[in-house]
Simulated scan of single mutants.
Amino acid sequence: MLERKKIKGRTHITFILPDDTPQGPVSVVGDFNHWNPAAHPLTPRGDGTRTATVALPAHSAHSFRYLAAGDFWFDDEHADHHDGINSRIHT
């Protein structure tokens, strides 16, 4: 799931996954963090989810995916669209 919040010319995107699916650590990686899995690991919240928030310029488009333990890459079904390889989001 994705949540968006516009703040002063930027859009804060919160990437949300269930706490246990998939199991183990998960990071959101994309062109906004140079595909670096250490940049935005998802952290647990008290409501049974885990999240990471990224501030992006308004009116921009970005590619991203999730990277889980065991080199398991996957897309977000709630993304704005998919380009065949990556999930895409528009701010």
Rank of each mutant, 00 (worst) to 15 (best):
F32H: 05
V29M: 11
P57F: 07
S63Y: 10
H59Y: 10
T49F: 10
D19V: 12
L42W: 09
P25L: 03
L17K: 06
G30E: 01
W35V: 12
I13M: 13
T49R: 12
F32Q: 03
V26S: 00
T11Y: 13
D19H: 09
T14Y: 09
N36Y: 09
K6E: 08
V26W: 02
R45K: 11
V54N: 00
L17P: 00
P57W: 05
S60N: 04
L56Y: 13
W35E: 09
L17V: 05
F64N: 03
F32R: 06
S63C: 02
H40A: 00
A39G: 03
P18M: 08
D47W: 02
Y66K: 01
P41V: 09
Q23H: 04
G46R: 12
P25W: 08
L56Q: 09
L42D: 10
V28S: 13
W35L: 13
I16S: 10
A61G: 14
H40W: 04
P57K: 14
T49A: 05
D31W: 10
A39L: 04
N33H: 06
G30K: 07
R65K: 15
F64V: 01
L56C: 12
S27D: 09
P18D: 12
D47V: 01
V26Y: 01
S60Y: 02
P25A: 10
S63Q: 14
P18S: 09
T51H: 08
F64T: 02
A52S: 13
I7L: 04
F32V: 08
N36R: 09
R10M: 15
A61R: 13
N33W: 08
T51M: 03
S27R: 10
I7H: 06
P22D: 08
G48C: 14
R50P: 00
H34G: 11
Q23G: 11
P25T: 04
G9T: 14
P25Y: 04
T51W: 01
T14I: 05
D47T: 05
L56G: 04
P44G: 02
Q23I: 00
T53R: 15
L67C: 00
D47A: 03
G46V: 07
D31N: 15
V26F: 02
I16L: 15
R45T: 09
I13N: 09
I16Y: 02
V28F: 11
V28I: 14
I13P: 11
H12T: 12
P44M: 05
V26T: 02
A58R: 08
D31C: 13
L17F: 03
R10T: 15
H62G: 03
V54L: 07
T14D: 09
W35N: 12
D20N: 14
P25H: 10
V54D: 01
V54K: 04
Y66P: 04
G46A: 12
D19C: 04
A58Q: 11
G30A: 11
W35Y: 14
A52T: 04
L42V: 06
L67D: 00
F32P: 01
G9N: 12
T21R: 13
D20A: 11
V26M: 03
I13K: 08
R45N: 07
N36Q: 05
N36M: 07
